[in-house]
Amino acid sequence: MRIAGIDPGATGAVTVYDTDLGTLEIFDTPTATVRVGTRQVSRILPAAFARQLQLHRVDFAALERVHAMPKQGLASTFAFGHCYGVSEGVLAALGIPYELIEPQKWQALARVPKGKDGSRARAVQLFPAYAELFIRKADHGRSDAALIAYAFTQIGERAA
């Protein structure tokens, strides 16, 4: 089965975890910088996002369930919510079955250590052949996406 772990957001990513082969395919959320009023903001490109999911032959998706964060501005909250909504809408439009998974749940299932770089460190530990994809601090979206997909496989194993 090919499970997509989706970390929504303009700096998010998608990891497609092939559970039969144990391989990962990772792509960053396709975005474009656009002018909104006087600011430049990143916006997800829905058609490009949909095309990537199709190209990677996703069977199922685990989408991180996100919500507004304290002290986050209105514009950032809207932008983040927009990415989340586009992600869920694209999955539905493509007919890809999906489940929402809370950050606390996938982090517990993947046994992510505390700290700013816990997710990147755990992704390198679980997927050493892909370590170069998690090296930079900016790769946190990739590591989160990989761990979201991995965590979903743990849900099935624990239920069995």
Rank of each mutant, 00 (worst) to 15 (best):
R2F: 02
A4L: 08
A4P: 03
G5E: 05
G5S: 07
D7G: 03
P8K: 03
P8G: 03
A10I: 12
T11Q: 06
T15I: 07
T15D: 10
V16H: 07
V16S: 06
Y17G: 07
L21G: 00
L21S: 03
G22A: 07
L24H: 06
P30H: 05
T33G: 04
T33Y: 12
V34W: 05
R35E: 14
R35D: 02
R39N: 10
R43D: 01
L45D: 14
P46T: 08
A50C: 11
R51D: 14
Q52F: 12
L53T: 06
Q54I: 08
Q54T: 12
L55S: 06
L55E: 13
R57Y: 01
V58Q: 01
V58A: 06
D59W: 00
D59T: 10
D59Q: 02
F60I: 05
L63V: 12
E64L: 09
E64I: 05
V66R: 06
H67I: 07
A68F: 04
A68E: 13
M69C: 01
P70H: 09
Q72D: 11
A75H: 13
A75L: 13
F78A: 04
F78D: 00
F80E: 02
C83A: 15
V86H: 04
A93Q: 09
A93P: 06
L94V: 12
I101N: 01
Q104M: 07
K105E: 08
Q107C: 05
A108L: 14
A108I: 05
A108Q: 15
L109D: 09
V112Q: 09
P113V: 08
G115K: 03
D117R: 10
R120N: 11
R120Y: 00
R122M: 15
A123Q: 11
Q125V: 03
Q125I: 04
A129W: 11
A131Y: 12
E132K: 09
K137S: 15
A138N: 15
D139W: 00
D139N: 11
H140L: 15
A145Q: 07
A145G: 05
L147W: 01
A151V: 06
R158N: 09
R158S: 04
